[in-house]
């Protein structure tokens, strides 16, 4: 199998990324406001989101896997921080709407990571003899 199909891990991956996205999305709304420069907000959001994702990933790793949790959850943190910060400079977001946006980013990142896994595992596995 090129992608994870065991329900425990698929649902776990989904829960980890959705939750990380929601938490980081809500926090970014509390940090970034409409008065911020969008570029600065995106850079800071990317860094803060990535840093915040690490403890969340470590919390989930014991239950659902090591690199399989760390890599997508950190990517979710990075993307959520960037996207929610950018939106928060252009519109008034509540923490709830930030959380929903972050959750959506987390799900998209997870799907993208599953696709990347299928492509990389299919393409890069190789026999050399």
């Amino acid at each position: 199998m090129l992608v994870e199909i065991r329900p425990y891990f698929v649902l776990g991956d989904l829960a980890c990324n959705a939750a990380a996205g929601a938490v980081i999305g809500a926090l970014m709304v509390l940090i970034v406001g409409p008065e911020w420069n969008m570029f600065v907000a995106m850079v800071i959001g990317t860094v803060v989101g990535t840093v915040l994702s690490i403890p969340l990933a470590l919390l989930a790793a014991g239950m659902f896997g090591a690199m399989e949790v760390l890599v997508p959850v950190m990517t979710t943190g990075m993307a959520t921080g960037m996207v929610v910060s950018a939106v928060a400079t252009d519109a008034v977001l509540t923490t709830g709407s930030g959380a929903v946006l972050g959750l959506e980013v987390g799900v998209v990142v997870l799907i993208a990571t599953y696709l990347a896994n299928a492509v990389i595992r299919g393409k890069a596995s190789r026999w050399t003899s």
Partner: peptide, 8 residues
Amino acid sequence: KKVQHVYL
């Protein structure tokens, strides 16, 4: 001889 990718 062989490299097999397990995750990414």
